[in-house]
């Protein structure tokens, strides 16, 4: 199997009077269909690493390979196109557009991509919502949903353009245990049944136990010995 996502000596330092190193010398190979968890103490650089892997942030050293492509030479628009076509994000806070209906939120990436007609986009949106068990909510607005429902809508949106990799930053951080279990199961199935690569940051040991692999991050570096407290 080839690595769908690969980090090579990846580092990110914020310039300033006192430069801050967020992550340093990260080397990673993540395979297709793998479910990987990134864990580590607060402030260790997990989110920063996820932004780099998700092509949201640009590294100051090293490079990210996505689907066999070296992304280090890409400009802002090319990175945006890769995010649109190959990546899906789920954040701790659902980050849905408040003025858009649930269905409109989910179809947003498809409409931006513009590969399908309106009818096809709608039916695919409904299909995704149904798969995540929130089809009845499609006409509602995000504020009318529970936290768990919102997170499922956010996952549906991340899947809209059928991405290779789904990146999730503490997707269950704000959820009760029942909702957490659902979201965990969904991400697990994404990797194991639909062949998506899932990279999730989490503090939750139970969540991490469902993953194929756990990567410990301490002070911006990978630490193989790290275990959740």
């Amino acid at each position: 199997m080839t690595a769908v996502l690969r980090a090579e000596h990846l580092g990110r330092t914020l310039a300033g009077e006192v430069p801050v190193t967020l992550v340093e010398d990260i080397n990673l190979d993540i395979e297709r269909g793998e479910f990987v968890c990134i864990m580590g103490p607060s402030g260790s650089g997990k989110s920063s690493l996820l932004y780099l892997l998700g092509l949201l942030d640009v590294p100051t050293s090293g490079r990210v390979w996505l689907d066999g492509e070296d992304t280090s030479a890409y400009g802002e628009n090319e990175l945006a196109n890769r995010r649109l076509e190959k990546l899906g994000f789920v954040f701790q806070f659902h980050f849905l557009l408040a003025e858009f209906s649930v269905l409109d939120n989910v179809t947003l990436p498809m409409r931006r991509l513009g590969k399908h007609g309106d009818a096809a986009i709608r039916s695919r949106g409904m299909e995704l919502l149904a798969r995540l068990g929130v089809a009845e909510q499609s006409a509602k607005h995000p504020h009318q949903l529970s936290g768990g429902q919102r997170q499922r809508v956010a996952i549906a949106r991340a899947l809209a353009n059928d991405p290779l990799v789904v990146l999730a930053d503490e997707p269950t951080g704000n959820l009760d245990s029942v909702s957490s279990a659902t979201v965990r199961q969904i991400l697990h199935d994404l990797a194991h049944q639909m062949g998506k690569t899932v990279v999730a940051v989490t503090h939750d040991a139970e969540f991490a136990s469902a993953a194929d692999r756990r990567i410990g991050l301490v002070d911006g570096k990978i630490n193989a010995d790290w275990r959740p407290a």
Partner: peptide, 16 residues
């Protein structure tokens, strides 16, 4: 700004 950040993270260009 939050909505703009969401759109850009999804893959909207600065131009959009």
């Amino acid at each position: 700004t939050r909505d703009i950040a969401i759109l850009k993270s999804i893959g909207f260009h600065a131009r959009d």
